[in-house]
Structure formats: C-alpha cells, structure tokens
Nucleic acid binder design. Structure first.
Length: 571
RNA sequence: UGCCCCUUAGCUCAACUGGCAGAGCGUCUGACUCUGGAUCAGAAGGUUCCAGGUUCGAAACCUGGAGGGGCAACCA
C-alpha cells in the first residue's frame, strides 16, 4: 500500500518489488508509448464460476489499474453460444466485487459482433481473408503438421467479390453450420501453426444467451480477443502462457484492422495449486457429476466456494500478492494458501472453545449445582484487539476425546489416568477414574479439580504441561461442524494411473460432518457468518446457508498447524 | 521431428535494462511460560541444469548439450 512519503529522509526502503509486467507498464507510463493511460481488462468467458486462477488474473489486472492510475474493464468473452449463460455472468460480477475490485466499464464481446464483422469485410476487401468451404477434416489436413507445411485448399484463391458475397450470405443465415468459415489469408507454411490461415468466423445457428437467435456467425477467440482489446483501448492485454503462440495473430489482426497504438499482449504463468484443480472444464464435471454440491461447495477452489467456506477476500488478495507473477509455469503449494488464510484470520477473529468430539468429565469434588463465570479474553496477547466473554464452569464438562488417552505414549501432555492438565482459562484437573460402557468404550472421566488454581497457575508452583479446551455440559450449545479438507488426496490430481482420471484422485475425507459438537454459549447471539478460531482446532465460520439460531452449523475454514499430529506421524 | 517458453535453497517461486542471489513453506533452536498447534525471534540450507564463450563483472548475454512444458479445436 502507499506509505506516506512525508516521513523524513528514509530512501524508499520499502519500494515494492515489481514483476516484469508492472515494469513494462511503468515504462509505458514513463514513455507515453500508447498515448493513453494504462488500460487493462479481465476477460472471462461466462461458462463457469471464477476460481483461484482467475483471482490471480483479477488481482493483476485490477491491481495494475489501481497502482498506475489506469482503468480496468470487466469484459465477458462471450463468443461461444454453446457454453455460456447469464447465471455465470451474474456470478462473475458478484465474485469480482467481493474480491474488492470495481471495473471501470462492463463490456461484452457479443456487443462487438457487428464491429468485428465490419473488420472481417475489410480484410476480405484487402484480400487478407477468404471464405473456405472445406469441411473440418479437410481444413485440418490442409494445415499440415508441426514439422511439415500445409497445403492450400481449393477455395483459397476465391475472388474478393465471391468472398464478400459468401461472407454476407453467411451473416444473412443462408448457410448451414460448418459449410463455410472465414479464414485469414496468411501463410500455410508458417512455423507458427496458428498463423496457417487461422479461422476467424464460423457459422453457428444457436441461441446465444444475450444475442438470442439474431446472430449466426460467431468469431473465434483469436479473431475476437485482440480486436476487442483494441476497440476498448486496452494498452496491455494480460493472458496466460498457453496463448503465447496467439500473440502473432493478435498483432497481425490489430495491425490489419488499422488501430493506432494497438494493445500488446503479455503472457504470464497460469496458477496451479496443489491438491485441487483449476480448470473450469473439470470443475464443471465435479458439479455435474455430483461430486460436490455445486460451484459454491466449500471444497471448491472457486471464489464462491471459498467465500462460503469462510475465507476472506483479504486472504485471497494477500495470497495473490505473495505468489507473484512470472513467465515460468508455477505450481504453488496449497499450504501457502492455507498460510495466507490463517495469517489473515489470526489478527481478526475472536477465540472460542468448541469441543468437536465430546467426552464427559465429572468433577467429583466440585459442588453440585454450582456455576461460576470464568473470564476469558477473546484474543491472545499478541493480537492487538480487546474483548472477552465469560464462560460458565460447572461440575459436568465436555472435553475432546482426542485429549484423553487411557494408555498414553510418552510426551502425551493431555488427560490420562492420574495425569493433571489445565483447562483453558480455568482450573487444573486430575483424572482419577475412567468410566466405560459394556462395550468397553470410555464414556466418562471422573476427575478432581484444584480449587486453588482458578488462575490456571498452581500456588505451589508445580508445572502442568498441557492445556486443553472444554465447555460446561449444561450450558454448551450443540452444533454441527463440517470439517472440510483438501478436495484431492494427491498434489497433482491429474497424475493418476493409465485409464483413470482426476475423479479417482478425489479425497473421500474432504468433508467430515460432526453432527453434535459442543460450543461455549457465548456465540449464541452472534450473527450468522461470524468467524472464530476454535482454540487448538482451527478457524471456523457459521454456515450462511444452513445455520439457524436453533442449530448452528460451522464450516472449518482451515485447520491450525498441528505439530502433535506430526509427532504422531513420525512415531 | 519444426517453432516458442522454462530449468535458481529440501519444496514452491522471486531477482527491473549484466552490479553483494532473496521470499514463503518446510526443518531446527529459542521466546511468550494459560492455544503442544497461535504469535514472535534466530539459525541451518546455493557449483543459479551441464560445457564452453563475451565482459572489469553473468542467474541474466552468445554457442552447444541435457531435462521439462506449450502449439497441429469451426473451445477460450
């Protein structure tokens, strides 16, 4: 952010490191090469929900506009009637805004169809484009291969008049799908396959979600994209690496169309994240095949999913900043994202105690019927926030089953027969007796508390290693907790054995529902959607769709780092 | 097999036009002594893929090699 420059003398020690794209934009500003301010755009196709990969692009495009006083448009690249839907354009707008960005203009490539058509005619007139009437297979065959040149088809040298006539009749709807296409006339032997007379326009008698049935010739990506950028006065068109080879046709088209100071394409590496998948096509399959509950399933890497899970936009922006932008394919560890999420939440959300897997504890020497209120600060000492709540304490409590072992290994600092632990914000207790049912399951612990240790400290100075969380049985609220974990069980979900696909890599444990957890009563009247750290467990948010005042439901946003689990794994 | 891109710490990545190779995660140690897990501090960790060359100086530029990726959709 902008720290004040008024601070004395210190040479800009905090000049932010710039990536290669920002360097270029800074240079554009310095040299005035475009004759206009920096202008970027975020151009999603409305055929799915936005995900983390888009978040990277959004932060880049909108971020550059903010930092350099430029503009950033939201443009829907809606040139394929088969896949697009208003529902997606609405979701995309909501997600961009939720991330904290506002576009300068909202545009649709489908509004440029007429303009694009005019450009197409002008290319025909210049002899730079022709109508090809070969079928798909013939065109493919005529393109050659990466190592051999293509061969001209029989329609390549049609006259300008014939091309123009055919193009007009294509537009008028006289021809069936696939009978003709408009192609740029460039070079069938070009080393760049994309330049071998790329297809510009195809016939599609289909319903377009915005144009209805009034338009039947649809521009292909390469034709529409650069020219749309140029029409909007974009200066730098930021896209991912796989479009590298498209840059040549991009430049060719904006030049042939006669744009002054046309935009220039810059490519950066697309984001890949461990243990998840960032491909709209594959995410759509998860949705359609019912592997998740929808695009906003909290396990999805979509913006909507992360929002529902409880992640804040600040964390996503912070993450995008830390991963940077470069020209090398980057696979980022999901741990880095989880770190950003914790880092954000740590400074923001209050701590509460929630027992996920309740085990009853009876304090045999605590007066029956007595309830005392313990004061519990909501934030640890190093979070600069204040506030506290009171926690009822009584003879019957719940602690977490994980915090008790009947036959503990060494270095287990929690409850075990004969062992003493500290109850967070409360007394030291010692376990004296383990009660089991007929099946041999532990159903209750009978303990004694030390009345002199209300502060958590023993007056005699004895050390107690473990501190565990707890709730008072009578006052605790029952709640449902949905423990979300990684969607896939391996870092690269596509790296599966022959014959299988990413579906087989799904993590069967990605959602574990705990129907009856016990949470301290202080949260009872908090608004739905409140976030907390459940101490020693993780960060949680009350589920917006499912929580009711009668029955709270919590999503686990992210767990805490767990060194004991690591210790266990090591053993 | 043609063209293009990439190769830097254990891992994932930075390093503007050649000028002391840096982060995050992970690991280890310490502090806070009421979160075993938060947070903070410190440490360890490098033949910049290899071989040559240019230069006072190369991760960066040049040549060759090795390994990985992209491109031959009427998708974007």
């Amino acid at each position: 952010m902008s720290d004040s420059t008024s601070e004395a003398g210190s040479e800009s020690t905090s000049t932010p490191r710039r990536d290669f794209i920002r360097e270029m934009v800074a240079d554009d500003v310095a040299t005035g090469r475009f004759g206009r301010g920096p202008a970027t755009r975020f151009p999603p196709e409305p055929n799915g929900f936005l995900h983390m990969g888009h978040a990277k692009s959004i932060c880049l495009n909108f971020g550059i506009a903010q930092e350099f006083g430029g503009t950033c448009n939201l443009r829907f690249d809606d040139t394929n009637p088969a896949t697009e839907d208003v529902r997606y354009v609405e979701a995309i707008q909501r997600d961009v805004q939720w991330l904290g960005f506002q576009w300068d203009n909202l545009f649709y490539a489908s509004d440029y169809f007429e303009k694009l058509y005019e450009i197409a005619e002008s290319l025909v007139l210049k002899g730079k484009a022709y109508v090809d009437s070969q079928n798909e297979e013939e065109i493919r065959a005529g393109r050659g291969t990466v190592t051999s040149a293509g061969t001209p088809g029989p329609y390549r040298d049609r006259s300008v008049e014939e091309n123009l006539d055919l193009l007009r009749r294509m537009r008028a709807g006289e021809f069936a799908d696939g009978t003709h296409v408009l192609r740029a006339k460039i070079d069938l032997a070009h080393v760049n396959m994309i330049m071998r007379d790329p297809l510009l326009i195809r016939i599609r008698h289909a319903h377009h979600y915005r144009r209805g049935n009034d338009w039947c010739i649809y521009p292909l990506y390469d034709f529409a994209h650069g020219l749309s950028d140029a029409i909007e006065g974009i200066t730098r068109s930021l896209c991912t690496l796989e479009f590298k080879d498209s840059r040549e046709i991009y430049d060719w088209l904006v030049k042939e169309a006669g744009f002054e100071h046309p935009p220039t394409q810059i490519e950066f590496a697309r984001l890949e994240l461990d243990y998840t998948i960032l491909s709209k096509r594959k995410l759509l399959r998860l949705v359609n095949d019912g592997h998740v509950t929808g695009w906003d399933d909290p396990r999805m890497p979509t913006i909507a999913g992360l929002r529902r899970r409880g992640v804040r936009p600040e964390a996503i922006r912070e993450f995008c900043e830390t991963i940077g932008v470069a020209r090398k394919d980057a696979r980022v560890e999901i741990a880095a994202f989880e770190h950003a999420v914790r880092n954000d939440l740590n400074m923001e959300v209050p701590r509460v105690l929630c027992v996920l897997n309740p085990l009853k504890v009876v304090l045999t020497n605590y007066p029956e019927g007595q309830v005392e209120d313990l004061d519990a600060p909501s934030f640890p000492h190093d979070v600069p926030k204040t506030g506290s709540r009171s926690m009822p304490f009584s003879r019957e409590l719940y602690v977490d089953r994980d915090d008790f072992m009947e036959d503990p290994p060494k270095k287990f600092y929690r409850l075990a027969p004969g062992k003493e632990v500290r109850l967070r914000f409360g007394y030291l207790i010692t376990c004296n007796e383990v009660v089991k049912n007929d099946a041999g399951d532990v159903i209750e612990l009978r303990c004694t508390y030390d009345p002199a240790t209300r502060s958590g400290q023993a007056p005699d100075g004895r050390k107690v290693q473990g501190t565990i969380h707890w709730v008072s049985a009578a006052q605790a609220l029952s709640c449902e907790v949905r423990v979300y974990d990684r969607l896939f069980s391996q870092p690269d979900p596509d790296a599966v054995p022959e014959g299988q696909d990413f579906i087989s890599a799904l993590n069967p444990q990605s959602l574990v529902v705990i129907p009856d957890a016990k949470i301290e009563p202080s949260v009872a009247n908090d608004p739905i959607g409140s976030r907390y750290q459940f101490e020693r467990t993780g960060y949680f948010m009350s589920e917006v769709e499912s929580s009711t005042p009668e029955k709270l439901v919590f999503n686990r946003i992210v767990g805490l780092r767990d060194s004991w689990a690591k210790e266990v794994k090591r053993a």
